[in-house]
Design a protein around this nucleic acid. Structure first.
Length: 260
DNA sequence: ATGCCCACGACACGTGGA
């Protein structure tokens, strides 16, 4: 089963690129972030025409996550537990019902958190703590699960082009790194790092300052696997070439192949 | 040292992204 995660930075603005990519990559499951559209205005027909079932959790203008699947979606649940007052559409979970072994997946859009001396940063850290708690609650069920998305955390200096450029940024603050490490330390596997050790492989390049042509990127999009999913991991890669397409997202897709 | 670019909402530029 080929599962991809992709922050599209507006599904409506990106629809031609998304459809081209789905036709090229033929993923079974797609975890989308920053759809930036309400559930009513989600461009479902064009995506369903390619054979996908859709679960969506959107809001106007900001955030928004969705799951596309060639297999039926079951047990769909929107919103991250731990704060009933949180109205930002950043988490959607479902079970992919295959003829073989099912896989639980989540599409995750963690808060950016900048500027780091404001309540936005506190919200980011609190949100990551809630994600930690939720992952901890899932693990005893011993299911294969894949938490995929834009975690908005740069884990190490191997995952960015220039540490000085990111010093003090909410994506690279020690508190953010520690919050994400504590999630990994529950026993989750960073699928890309399980398959590739070479440094400086990125998933995001800023639109500004020629970041793409200079390869000034960061790695902030992840597929985090439960032990039962990691046992079935066959391959993982970053589809970097998509960043060079016409009107691209600033993020590119990351995919993993999970044996059925 | 800072902004560069892009998307959105609803027309002008402010907000948010990372």
């Amino acid at each position: 089963m080929k599962i991809i995660t992709w922050n599209v930075n507006s599904l409506k603005a990106r629809l031609p690129v998304v459809l081209d990519y789905l036709r090229e990559a033929k993923p079974d499951v797609v975890l989308l972030q920053e759809t930036k559209c309400t559930d009513d205005s989600f461009p479902a027909l064009e995506i369903e025409a390619l054979g996908y079932n859709i679960a969506r959790h959107g809001q106007k203008t900001y955030n928004g996550v969705a799951i596309l699947s060639k297999y039926p979606l079951e047990d769909v649940c929107s919103g991250l537990a731990g704060d009933a007052a949180d109205e930002q559409a950043r988490y959607l979970e479902a079970v992919i019902s295959t003829p073989g072994r099912p896989v639980r997946v989540a599409s995750i859009y963690a808060p950016n958190g900048n500027p780091a001396d404001t309540p936005k940063f506190d919200y980011k850290l609190q949100w990551l703590r809630r994600l930690h708690q939720h992952a901890k609650n899932l693990l005893p069920d011993e299911e294969a699960f894949v938490l995929g998305g834009d975690l908005n955390v740069i884990l190490s200096e191997d995952d960015l082009y220039d540490p000085r450029a990111w010093e003090g940024d909410a994506l690279f603050r020690p508190e953010s790194i520690n919050a994400m490490r504590s999630i990994l330390n529950l026993g989750l596997t960073d699928a890309y790092r399980a398959c590739h050790t070479e440094p400086h492989r990125y998933t995001f390049w800023d639109y500004q300052a020629g970041a793409w042509t200079k390869d000034h990127g960061i790695r902030i999009d992840y597929l985090l696997l439960s032990p039962q999913a990691a046992d079935r991991l066959a391959a993982c890669a970053i589809d970097k070439h998509v960043r060079g397409w016409e009107r691209p997202s600033d993020h590119v897709p990351v995919w993993a192949e999970i044996r059925e």
